[in-house]
Simulated assay, not measured.
Amino acid sequence: MERRTFLRGAVIGGSVAAFGGSLWAGAAHAAPAQPGAGPYGALGPADANGIRLPSGFGSRVVARSGQQVTGTDHTWHNAPDGGACYEDGAGWIYVSNSEINPGGGASAVAFSSTGAITGAYRILSGTRQNCAGGKTPWNTWLSCEEVDRGYVFETDPWGVQASVRRDAMGRFKHEAAAADPVRRTIYLTEDVTDGCFYRFTPTTWGDLSAGTLEVLVADSGTSGPVTWAEVPDPSGASTATRNQVSGAKRFTGGEGCYYADDTCWFTTKGDNRVWQYNAAAQTVELAYDDSLVDGDAPLTGVDNVTGAASGDLFIAEDGGSMEICLITPDDVVAPFLRVDGQSGSEITGPAFSPDGTRLYFSSQRGTSGSSSGGITYEVSGPFRA
């Protein structure tokens, strides 16, 4: 396919601080995180939106599935899922996938510098079950199809350029993506019970039309050195990508992933684990495992993940207690918020505004338990820098 530039504020070469702030460097997580007091204190009573937050924080509803986004003529999509934020002049844009099949796709909401909604629009249509994805350093959105032999679509958050299907990134049950601007590669998770962890290295950084798809190879343990092996047939036409390389390490239901400071953090829902791949050392180890928690585990149903400038990881629950929990740099895991009265839903799409003062996320099925009942929220408050 022809290359699409999409280059709004792009930085294509070198090392880029593209994902906000500094997370843990090196191998700070020598042991999985344990429960403790979070940096923001206990959760208060539910607010008018049914969200329990620490003192000093507040929430608002940004959009509801099947309804027009306030002040616009755009109807918000069903089953909102993975998301990301992009700088837009003095304001920003929040992009959100739609995990329905058929239909899928993604939409965006634009905000002014004060947080007022200034627009909403469709940026991807005609795809299938777009679950999570990832932001690129050149400011595009990689929207991933969570279906057998699904594709990755590179999408313009401003909705100006046409989206492009990126076949070279492999055909499998895609979940999430995270770009590593230092090694100029993109990590990918696979949402099946015997899935793998991949990386795609473009022939030219900034152009995803061609490159090499590899799978992580390691023994069956939870920590240690790893290697990478090329996937012979990324199309998976005759053999699934995960079954083409002997020794490929298996993960039970790959979900969200996030890169910062030489580390890609990713989650697996089948065993409620948060993993860390140290790209500099080429090792993998556990950052969190609910079966290794002393006492009751605060984080279960691990799903989408993002990071804050403070070094905190924010992990959304699919079910569980309908919480977004955080893991601090000193290995403490604690709830940050809880959504009440929506036990038939899951939390999706956590992403911070560029200035780090607002956190966006969705309850995929809201109070109704149906994909048509999705609600997208904003939380604002004194997030630590």
Results as ranks from 00 to 15, higher is better:
residue 248 A to P: 13
residue 249 K to A: 04
residue 249 K to D: 09
residue 249 K to V: 01
residue 249 K to R: 14
residue 250 R to P: 06
residue 251 F to A: 06
residue 251 F to Q: 09
residue 252 T to C: 14
residue 253 G to S: 13
residue 254 G to E: 09
residue 254 G to H: 02
residue 254 G to R: 08
residue 255 E to C: 10
residue 255 E to F: 08
residue 257 C to F: 02
residue 257 C to N: 15
residue 258 Y to V: 06
residue 258 Y to C: 11
residue 259 Y to C: 11
residue 259 Y to L: 15
residue 259 Y to T: 08
residue 260 A to E: 12
residue 261 D to C: 13
residue 261 D to Y: 00
residue 262 D to E: 14
residue 263 T to S: 14
residue 263 T to M: 15
residue 263 T to Q: 13
residue 263 T to Y: 02
residue 264 C to L: 14
residue 265 W to P: 15
residue 265 W to V: 08
residue 265 W to N: 05
residue 265 W to C: 06
residue 266 F to Y: 06
residue 267 T to V: 10
residue 267 T to H: 05
residue 270 G to V: 00
residue 270 G to N: 07
residue 270 G to F: 06
residue 271 D to A: 08
residue 271 D to K: 12
residue 272 N to C: 09
residue 273 R to H: 10
residue 273 R to D: 11
residue 274 V to Y: 00
residue 274 V to M: 00
residue 274 V to P: 02
residue 275 W to K: 07
residue 276 Q to F: 08
residue 276 Q to V: 11
residue 277 Y to V: 09
residue 277 Y to W: 13
residue 278 N to L: 12
residue 278 N to Y: 01
residue 278 N to G: 10
residue 279 A to F: 05
residue 279 A to Y: 03
residue 279 A to I: 08
residue 280 A to T: 14
residue 280 A to H: 13
residue 280 A to M: 14
residue 280 A to E: 12
residue 281 A to W: 03
residue 282 Q to W: 05
residue 282 Q to R: 10
residue 282 Q to T: 07
residue 283 T to C: 06
residue 284 V to Q: 05
residue 284 V to K: 04
residue 285 E to V: 09
residue 286 L to N: 07
residue 286 L to P: 12
residue 287 A to W: 02
residue 287 A to L: 08
residue 289 D to P: 02
residue 289 D to L: 07
residue 290 D to E: 09
residue 290 D to M: 10
residue 290 D to Q: 12
residue 291 S to P: 03
residue 292 L to M: 09
residue 292 L to I: 01
residue 292 L to P: 00
residue 292 L to R: 01
residue 295 G to C: 15
residue 295 G to Y: 04
residue 295 G to M: 12
residue 296 D to C: 12
residue 296 D to G: 07
residue 297 A to H: 06
residue 297 A to C: 07
residue 297 A to K: 09
residue 298 P to I: 00
residue 299 L to I: 03
residue 299 L to F: 10
residue 300 T to M: 05
residue 301 G to E: 01
residue 302 V to C: 04
residue 303 D to E: 03
residue 303 D to A: 00
residue 305 V to Y: 01
residue 305 V to N: 06
residue 305 V to Q: 11
residue 305 V to R: 05
residue 306 T to P: 10
residue 306 T to L: 03
residue 306 T to G: 14
residue 307 G to N: 05
residue 307 G to M: 09
residue 307 G to E: 09
residue 308 A to K: 06
residue 310 S to D: 14
residue 310 S to V: 04
residue 310 S to A: 12
residue 311 G to W: 06
residue 312 D to A: 11
residue 313 L to F: 00
residue 313 L to W: 00
residue 313 L to N: 00
residue 314 F to P: 10
residue 315 I to M: 08
residue 315 I to Q: 08
residue 315 I to N: 04
residue 316 A to C: 15
residue 316 A to G: 08
residue 317 E to G: 08
residue 317 E to F: 04
residue 318 D to N: 12
residue 319 G to C: 07
residue 319 G to A: 07
residue 321 S to W: 11
residue 321 S to A: 11
residue 321 S to I: 02
residue 321 S to K: 11
residue 322 M to P: 15
residue 322 M to G: 13
residue 323 E to Y: 01
residue 323 E to V: 01
residue 323 E to N: 12
residue 323 E to T: 03
residue 324 I to W: 00
residue 324 I to N: 05
residue 324 I to H: 03
residue 324 I to Q: 03
residue 325 C to V: 00
residue 325 C to S: 04
residue 325 C to P: 02
